[in-house]
Design a binder for these strands. Sequence first.
DNA 1: TTGTATGCGTTATCAA
DNA 2: TTGATAACGCATACAA
Lengths: 348, 348
Amino acid sequence: MAGQKNKVTIFDVAKASGVSSSAVSYALNNKPGVSEATRAKVLKIARDLGWKPNGAAQSLARSNTSRIGVVLAREETQLLSVEPYMMELLAGLGTELEQHDYSILLRFAVGRDAEMAILKDWIATGNVDALLLVNLEMDDPRVELLKNNPEMPVLALCDPSLSGGLPVMRSLDMQAVTRAVSYLHDLGHERIGRVGGPESFGHSYIRDAAFSDAAAELGVRYRCLHADYTPSGGIEATKRLLSVSPRPTAIIYDNDVMALAGMGIAREMGFDIPGDLSIMAWDDSFMCTAVFPHLTVMGRDIVGSGRRAAQLLLKIIDGEQVDVADEAPYDLRERASTGPVPAETANR
Amino acid sequence: MAGQKNKVTIFDVAKASGVSSSAVSYALNNKPGVSEATRAKVLKIARDLGWKPNGAAQSLARSNTSRIGVVLAREETQLLSVEPYMMELLAGLGTELEQHDYSILLRFAVGRDAEMAILKDWIATGNVDALLLVNLEMDDPRVELLKNNPEMPVLALCDPSLSGGLPVMRSLDMQAVTRAVSYLHDLGHERIGRVGGPESFGHSYIRDAAFSDAAAELGVRYRCLHADYTPSGGIEATKRLLSVSPRPTAIIYDNDVMALAGMGIAREMGFDIPGDLSIMAWDDSFMCTAVFPHLTVMGRDIVGSGRRAAQLLLKIIDGEQVDVADEAPYDLRERASTGPVPAETANR
DNA sequence: TTGTATGCGTTATCAA
DNA sequence: TTGATAACGCATACAA
């Protein structure tokens, strides 16, 4: 019962125009091989008849699909709670693809095995022209799979160290980390805590190293705990960070939800934000300016990254060589949740 | 440069098996017409050769695509800030579709015209087997379009009063509104404010009416302002609601972001939550339990709704009649942001 | 410039 | 039970 009310084919158009189907095809695709007169006539008749190309037939003949594949993997239990990021990325990707008549083919996998099965299916069936790989982990099996199938265009969103040579768009986490740490250091903070995302995630790992380096560079004491992006994870980690003495005077969270939860529990524990404790989050969202005090964040143009990814993918599909591209850099969005360390409370 | 390393076709399988291509097709599709012996042989050889059906060819021959189309419309300026809802819905939809080898074909439109163009394209090209319509507005042109193209299966997520007879899955907003109002009334609240979503949205309108009715029923004073789902919108509306005398003792927000922002500004204004003012939000998210006090919400199983929508769509594709289906009901998730009205502050 | 013929990979019809 | 063969709708090499 599929769609397709429109049973008008190029043969119908050809008959109505008094020319052959190939002439119609040339005319409709703006290719040489027909006179301007017949082209115009064919175009008019095609429009009058309401002709539109059949997608499947076009795909079969051209052997391309005008679709980019994205698999979102959920864990068994719950949604990967990076939704605001993912949605913005998809929006940027989709908006840019729209300019080129490309679509996003989206699938949800429960578990890594299911994700691999989908990717293998796409490689074999040719249901997408290219793949966007997100949320890469260390030694990710997807990298191996796509290196073994070099004919499938792909772009990975991760650090080049994780992609095994696949084309990559990387986020500039390193310099952002340096910026964040020196910002807090400039405010007088000498003990900084961090609540990172799951250790298996590639970007958690990358940030781990960058934070250690930046802190060492500036002589800042740095302690990191890993959590799972959820409120309870953020609360637990915050409690632990604040229970040691001397406690950190600033905490950076890998996402907004944990930052919000951390700020909340810190207040419940009697800390004033930012008087006693400065709070920073990674990645911006509506949430960050909905809460009081507004959260200082390291933000970036995620929608823009999605658009850039689309452009890169189209290039790769075109056969252009892409190795490593950069996202737009992060910028520090200073708001009310961070401030200088008051001398008298610093060692409380 | 499209994918398709696997140039193994059914002809290759046929040759290797020593049978004809049609026999192979029957065998692979579990259809009668071949003996069990040859079926088994063909299946084995197909697997050994790594054969997978070509998607485009299959679509063309079967004239179906195994894809459900979803268009997300963004306004000119910014993302529609219902992202957490949308992402969960897509996750449910996609997870269920996965069981039936269906995918989501996702496109992002900027503006309603672009969205209409995409839908028309899909109807003509047959690039999807069915459509899911979300975020319906009053007198939505999409309804008209799909009524004029009854051969395209469709499910709308809205109140039946908005769908013009198209198959619908409706959310049970009416009873949820009644529940919310009576919950607050039972706590002693006699003046309730509300910050709704944009008036053009169908569900805003539905809730408007339901709130008015429920408030009148219980003799509760009710005042509603409409905002745009953003923090600043929530803040502005909250200020206005609290600036009149006597002020409401409870405010219900149509989304979590506005509730968070409203709670924040109310505190800045000196109100204790929930001592002086009770706050409730519509739809649950991580945000609601990340903030202190945790937000009392009217929640629902959005992922489940997505799954249900998938099941309905597959039914509709199968030619089954679907008129009006219900989402799972909302449930009141009582947390710390709501409480009784202290007599002495009630008229402050 | 135009038309004919064939390929794309499956599914489905119809003889054998 | 089998195996040619014709759709499916479009693109294109080749011949006219």
